[in-house]
Design a protein around this nucleic acid. Structure first.
Lengths: 232, 232
DNA sequence: CCCTCTCCTTGATAAATATCAAGTCTCTAA
DNA sequence: TTAGAGACTTGATATTTATCAAGGAGAGGG
């Protein structure tokens, strides 16, 4: 597989400033594979043999304990997952399965760690990516500890709405079961939370959501850049 | 201030493999200060001017939104906090206040970022530290999403018990109000959770806890290395 | 076209957790 | 020594969330 096959991978923050030869070397040993939906990719507790990069489709990160299961995150193109485990040469803390048919790039952990040593720009990019991931989980954690279920849903809807152009209508990027788990609630409760939001201009039709009164939604949701901004 | 003043800082994972001259340069520009209890050190939203290292005492990390407040973590010697914000040159996502009278080392963010460029060993250590922090929050997040309040308390007690020698008795390292918030519950509920654990051999006397039946506690708590282990 | 499956919704109920209001206890300081 | 403050506890109640059970709607396959 050639680097030129995957310009979007090369453009990833992680790789964009990397020296050509190091990037090529990484791609040399990488695997690009297509997986069917609902396929388990990794299981928590496994040793981190590969860094995963979602090129097409989407991947659900989840965790289990005590017979319970919860969605920890959703990775869409082009995004990486389990970078921390790879860098620490430790076991995965989360499991991952494809949500849709997905094209995924696997890079052996060992090579990632070598590239980190050899390429200072890559090292810097790794740190930036890792710091972003860290801040992402902190925000997720704040979201869960500081907001009620309805507030979490409202803010999530506002985010999706914004991501998809903010023109009053958008599609949920995954099924409601998964959304419920990601928001830390049951599917039944998600249904009820949608009903609670009806007076605030939220219209649900399958996976299409219409927001007819964004102002009133924002009054309720009180979005907070230190929780909701993807960038900072 | 001389490096030799703070052997425990030098011994920190972050600095132990750093070149002497780079470490000295960092210490040259660092401030070592002592703060009284309950003093606000940083506020979420502020720009990250310094990396903080707790040398003595303890620091509570917390976050606010919507009039609510929640403890996000507790840093004891010798530990760092808000490394990610420093590396990204971004605003803090959490606030911090001293829990006790504390001695704290402040290193200007700019110097940390420079040292990262100049010292490959330091860069590697930063990545390890950051990856550990990331995994710490992920575990905290799993803890909150996959366990009930009583289970969280039980596991926390087992951890403290273990940390302090595992001889059947230990001290809570902070007041119960803070513990409650850290575990994601109200103080009232923490009280009740302690009562729920009484039949499992948990005896509370102020901040002294006695575990008279660790087996039965472990049966209830079902500790999970992928949530509870500090190391991995 | 209809069956069946899955996903989602709804209603009824139960469990977990939060809130409000006293109370108790302990520590400190006058 | 005692008053007061702060931290914790307890009880009563409200709210939030989960669970259980059932039904409906839509998609895909025969």
């Amino acid at each position: 597989m050639r680097a030129s096959d995957l310009p979007e991978v090369r453009a990833l923050g992680l790789f964009s400033s990397m020296e050509e030869k190091h990037f090529d070397a990484l791609m040399e040993v990488a695997y690009l594979q297509t997986f069917p939906p609902q396929l388990d990719l990794i299981a928590e507790g496994d040793v981190a043999d590969f860094l995963y990069i979602v090129v097409e489709g989407s991947v659900e990160l989840f965790a289990r304990s005590n017979g319970r299961e919860s969605t920890m995150g959703l990775v869409r193109p082009v995004g990486t997952f389990i970078l921390a485990a790879v860098l620490k040469d430790a076991v995965y803390l989360m499991s991952a399965r494809t949500a849709q048919r997905s094209k995924i790039l696997l890079i052996p952990s060992q090579n990632i760690r070598e590239a980190f040593q050899q390429d200072a720009e890559f090292a810097r990019a790794i740190v930036q990516e890792l710091a972003s991931c860290y801040r992402g989980v902190v925000k997720e954690h704040k979201n869960l500890k500081l907001r009620t279920a309805v507030e979490r849903l409202a803010n999530r809807l506002l985010r999706y709405h914004n991501d998809q152009g903010g023109n009053g209508s958008f599609e949920l990027p995954h099924d409601k079961r998964t959304l419920a788990s990601a928001l830390g609630m049951t599917p039944e409760n998600l249904s009820r939370a949608f009903n609670t939001l009806k007076p605030y201009g939220v219209e649900v039709e399958g996976s299409t959501i219409r927001l007819t009164d964004v102002n009133s939604m924002e009054t309720l949701a009180k979005p907070n850049p230190l929780i909701d901004d993807r960038k900072t």
